[in-house]
Design a protein around this nucleic acid. Structure first.
Length: 557
DNA sequence: GCCGTTTTCGGCCCGACTGTTTTCAGTCG
């Protein structure tokens, strides 16, 4: 079992206990253990081998035994027992925004509903509104929530799919029969939600590759096998397909299987197989098709092929272009890492600067800093900067809450003293479009704000973003030299690629941030980079590719 | 269920909003 699978079971145990209204602290204990396991920087099996499971924060005697059982047997008796009382379909209902453990229990107890399909039916038959504590509004919200879930049905985030794909890929690569291999399809294009994992393999011995797929520990089930493909299921029900081609067809197939359908139609129009077979690189395939090289992320139906013909493609930014990360939480608020550890991690990533941007006071659940704490943190950062050797700097920052009326959670003089001010919305998600836009515009024109964090607040597969009018926001951001964030967390990827591209047209600067709450989270920028490339961004468009002095000048504006 | 040099038992983040109510329970971040 993978760390994520174990974490998910612990999480589900917590959910069931909560629905059963058991000791809330016991619930929290399971949630905490789940989080710890999820954010572990090493494979649980390695911990197990060294008998270190008990060292994981939040894991005591009972949970340790359960984790060990999961690693040994791939199952957990306690969890299975709980599922007999509260089936998985009931847990699925928790995914609907506005439905918590209490309401789900009411629905399950009174109507015996234990699947999303039945739930939808019950809303249509107006059965929910008759339940104690639930009304017509809740019924309507459930229906709306279901729509979001249905829309994303079968799709998973890039943050879940990409690591699974990479793990499968590295196992397949161990086979001698695999000559060349790459992830293709929508994952290679960096789409934020994907429906399956596609892997392309070049081989002269298809049967040996099929055997290797079947031998992979991550593969839970084989779904289908044909002459030149095999598909199956990995953890979390994620579907994969391995496509096989003879070596001389590899690069043409790589281009073919990476591009979207529309892209393929355009790019391969009027071409014949003889023209491209045997090409020794993707560049060569493109060139034989009469095109300049088009990076994987933008092989969509977006005018690129035409551009590829005329040769005006820009150089998209890469992760190597990043010189720092401007949105990082520390253990001063809801982050887990000490500032000093963050510095070391950032230096390891080759960065020249980071900004520590914890939450502000209104977000009390996240340990938001008040004025005093902020000042104290500033002194700690000063001390760190004084002791730093070499070319590295820690900016003092804040992720300040945008309040309901657009005012900020700190007075202007306090914000003025900080190097980096990110303003973000964490409350009042369903104001109407006008008010929400106005609220953000007020933050943009505050004068002390440098970056607007996760502009739409969307959580992929969980919550739609709040409604805003994009054009006035982009216009104001450009005028006031306020950057928009690409929040790299794979659950957010906010702003998305389309908005990023539009922002660039408006002349708005972009910051690609990790929003790290754990030391390892800084690596999440890889998703932000893919997203930015999908938005055609170049290094020049992104403020944290700039050297420190230029960035400071921008922040002062 | 976890945790601890002030503790091996008694603690363990909270504040605001929303919807259902008629004074508050449930959800969320």
């Amino acid at each position: 079992m993978t760390n994520r699978e174990v974490a998910r079971i612990l999480d589900r145990i917590a959910d069931i206990l909560q629905i059963k209204e058991e000791n809330p602290f016991k619930v929290r204990a399971y949630k905490k253990a789940a989080r710890s396991v999820y954010h572990l920087d090493e494979d649980l099996h390695r911990y197990y081998e060294r008998d270190r499971i008990g060292d994981i924060p939040g894991v005591g005697k009972a949970i340790k035994a359960q984790i060990e059982e999961m690693l040994e047997k791939g199952s957990c008796e306690y969890y299975e027992g709980l599922l007999l009382e509260v089936p998985e379909g009931v847990l699925d209902m928790l995914r609907i925004p506005g439905l918590g453990h209490k309401s789900v229990k009411t629905i399950y107890d009174n109507l015996g509903i234990d699947s999303l399909d039945e739930l939808l039916k019950a809303t249509e038959e107006k059965k929910i509104r008759s339940l104690p504590g639930l009304g017509a509004k809740t019924e309507y919200n459930i229906k709306k929530g279901m729509e979001l879930l249905t829309r994303s049905e079968g799709k998973v985030t890039l943050g879940l799919a990409l690591p699974l794909a990479e793990s499968l890929l590295s196992f397949l690569r161990e086979s001698k029969a695999v000559q060349q291999i790459n992830i293709v399809g929508s994952i290679r294009r960096g789409k934020s939600l994907v429906s399956d994992i596609d892997i392309l393999v070049a081989s002269n011995d298809f049967n040996a590759v099929f055997d290797q797929v079947r031998n992979c520990r991550d593969v839970k089930k084989i779904l289908k096998q044909g002459k030149d493909y095999i598909s199956g299921q990995l953890s979390f029900g994620v579907v994969f397909e391995v496509i096989l081609v003879p070596p001389k067809a590899y690069y043409p197939a790589l281009v073919w299987t990476t591009g979207s359908k529309e892209f393929r139609l355009k790019a391969f129009k009027d071409s014949n197989p003889d023209q491209i077979i045997g090409a020794a690189s993707e560049e060569e395939v493109f060139s034989r098709l009469g095109l300049n090289y088009i990076p994987p992320e933008i092989r969509e139906d977006n005018g690129l092929v035409e551009l590829g013909r005329s040769g005006q493609l820009s150089r998209l930014l890469t992760q190597n272009d990043l010189k720092g990360d401007l949105h990082i939480h520390s253990d001063w608020s809801d982050g887990a890492a000490k500032i000093q550890d963050t510095v070391i991690a950032a230096q390891t990533m080759g960065y020249h600067y980071v900004a520590i941007t914890d939450h502000s006071k209104t977000l009390s659940i996240s340990g938001g800093l008040n004025e005093e704490h902020l000042k104290a943190q500033g002194q700690v950062i000063d001390a760190i900067n004084n002791n730093l050797k070499g070319d590295f700097y820690v900016f003092k920052g804040i992720e300040v809450d945008i309040l309901k009326d657009g005012r900020l959670d700190f007075e202007d003089p306090i914000l003025k003293d900080l190097d980096v001010v990110i303003a973000s919305i964490h409350s009042h998600f369903n104001l109407d479009k006008d008010k929400q836009t106005e609220r953000i515009l007020k933050a943009i024109t505050n004068g002390n704000v440098d970056i607007i964090g996760h502009l739409t607040g969307r959580l992929l597969n969980r919550r739609s973003g709040y409604e805003v009018y994009l054009d006035p926001i982009l216009e104001a951001a450009a005028q006031n030299h306020v950057a928009l964030e690409i929040n790299s967390h794979p659950d957010r990827l906010d702003i998305d690629a389309e908005v990023a591209r539009k922002a660039k047209q408006y002349g708005v600067e972009i910051a690609i941030n990790s929003d790290a709450h754990h030391k390892d989270d800084m690596k999440l920028v890889r998703y932000g980079i893919m997203n930015a490339r999908r938005g055609w961004l170049e290094a020049e468009d992104v403020i944290n590719t700039w050297d420190r002095q230029r960035l400071i000048d921008f922040l002062k504006e």
